[in-house]
Nucleic acid binder design. Structure first.
Length: 476
DNA sequence: TGAAATGTTGGGGCG
DNA sequence: ACGCCCCAACATTTC
């Protein structure tokens, strides 16, 4: 009897170190499938930037599969129906996939697995997207059942005690052929592509797909990793890896990153050694984010810390939210970040913290509004990481920033963008302003201020809004 | 991966 | 020479 395996690809759009693929390819025929099922996304339908990325990532994956003698089958519609139809037309007797961990998707996968198994199919699910699955790392509580970690350092210590696995599956040269007569939809029919103008804007900054991920990683290792601890703080330079969207879509997995960075960690001394450790700890934050969202499935909407349920967020903030979204707050570093986000689908991480602190604390707008905007505009929008990040900044999450930690975007700018490189790159109105005013244009002499129109004055006073936030947070 | 307020120290200007 | 004041620079505390 011939075995035919359906490989259901979701957020693991790669051929290297893909555990489910490793299983699936030991088969006479292989049916690699991606299903576009907008209804499955519930409260969190991907934004245009994520859709754009997915479109190109699928195209890249199909190309890679074809080089190995296979190709990607696309389905559109309710997952269960599409799967059933593919299984029937391809005469499939085995199904494999890599697990996802977002609460709604976990539920959906569980039901599907049950349904498929009940119809007599062999179903195998794997881990390829995390170093540690969310339920693997737990606190020992002596008396009671294990409990999830809520503090990062303790969590990460436990992870390191287990050891960070860096064994990876090599990319297979040849893959089994696909069964005859299985219909596929055209990529264009998924409707993921935005208008051409946005496409070219994003294309200038990104190369979605497995190859693009490898190029990013290689470049980061060659040029930036050794000074990462310092370089990652300066938004004006390329000091970070920029690999987050590739990770989100699974074009590269965390094990591959640990594996690739290992030669550097072994050879590094002094600050270079600190740098590799700092970078790997960022992978740890990603793991921690998935751990938290899995164990606290409501945390995408509700603060983890219950005291924040009745926090006095502002109610009428319409114009301020729009000014923040559009990068027109009058605070250069904040606006530069928001404009970078809009134009590239990405924002430097330090600037993410600063714009988030500004929204939640200086503007006192609910963090969920910021999380939603990030979700809608980021190419690396990831429910776990986004949720953790926003709850951290707002101070209502696990291991969150203390309430009094309020970033001052002027000081942050002077510290980490002293030449104003970053601000000038994204706010052309300010190009001609001297460095000493670049982060606080409102203090410049009137003659200079006349030249920066239409750049607006600040929508809030930083000192007064800081004090307002402190007063509100102290109420807790 | 914070900022601002407050406290301490020591050099230099000055009468 | 001395005391006084100012203030930059740094340290500590507080939010």
């Amino acid at each position: 009897m011939t075995t035919t395996t359906l490989l259901w690809l979701r957020q693991d759009l790669r051929l290297t170190d893909n555990t489910a693929l490793e299983l699936a390819r030991k088969s006479d025929q292989l049916l690699p499938v991606y299903i576009h099922d907008p209804k499955l996304n519930g409260r969190w339908p991907p934004g245009a930037a994520s859709d754009w990325w997915l479109h190109h990532s699928l195209a890249s994956l199909d190309e890679d599969l074809r080089k190995s003698g296979s190709r990607l089958i696309l389905g559109v519609g309710p997952t269960e129906e599409v799967l059933k139809e593919l299984i029937r037309s391809g005469n499939v007797n085995r199904v494999c996939w890599n697990r996802r961990y977002e609460p709604d998707l976990v539920d959906a996968d569980r039901q599907l697995k049950k349904m498929l198994a009940a119809s007599g199919l062999e179903v195998k699910t794997c881990n390829s997207n995390l170093l540690f699955e969310p339920w693997d790392i737990q606190r020992d509580t002596k008396t009671e059942s294990p409990a999830p970690y809520r503090v990062f350092t303790a969590y990460w210590r436990a992870c390191n005690k287990r050891g960070l696995h860096d064994a990876v599956h090599h990319r297979p040269d040849r893959l089994p052929g696909i069964p005859r007569g299985v219909p596929s939809r055209k990529l264009e029919s998924l409707g993921l592509m935005p208008e051409t103008r946005r496409d070219t804007g994003l294309r200038n900054h990104w190369q979605p797909g497995e190859k693009g991920a490898q190029i990013r990683l290689d470049k980061f290792l060659k040029e930036s990793v050794e000074d990462y601890t310092n370089g990652r703080n300066q938004p004006g330079i390329t000091g970070t890896s920029g690999i987050s969207p590739h990770l989100h879509f699974g074009e590269i997995g965390p094990r591959q990153i640990i594996h690739a960075i290992k030669p550097w960690t072994e050879r590094a001394t002094g600050s270079a050694s600190e740098s590799t450790e700092t970078y790997i700890r960022e992978i740890g934050w990603r793991e921690f984010a998935h751990h938290l969202l899995f164990h606290y499935p409501q945390s995408d909407q509700h603060p983890l810390n219950r005291r924040f349920r009745n926090f006095s967020w502002r109610k009428d903030y319409g114009d301020d939210l729009i000014a923040w979204q559009q990068g027109n707050t009058g605070i250069p570093l904040v606006d530069a970040g928001m404009r970078e986000l809009w134009q590239t689908g990405w924002m430097h991480n330090r600037v993410r913290m600063i714009v988030a602190s500004f929204l939640a604390k200086n503007l006192m707008i609910p963090w969920q509004q910021g999380a939603r905007w990030f979700w809608d505009t980021l190419v690396d929008a990831d429910l776990a990481s986004n949720t953790l990040g926003w709850q951290w900044v707002a101070g209502c999450g696990a291991d969150a920033a203390p309430y009094f930690r309020i970033f001052n975007p002027v000081l942050q700018g002077e510290k980490f963008d002293p030449e104003g490189t970053y601000v000038r790159r994204w706010i052309p109105e300010l190009k001609a302003l001297p460095n000493r005013y670049i982060h606080k244009p409102w203090t410049a002499p009137q003659s200079l201020q006349a030249g920066i129109a239409p750049y607006p004055p600040p929508i809030v006073d930083l000192k007064a809004s800081r004090e307002r936030a402190l007063a509100a947070y102290r109420q807790l």
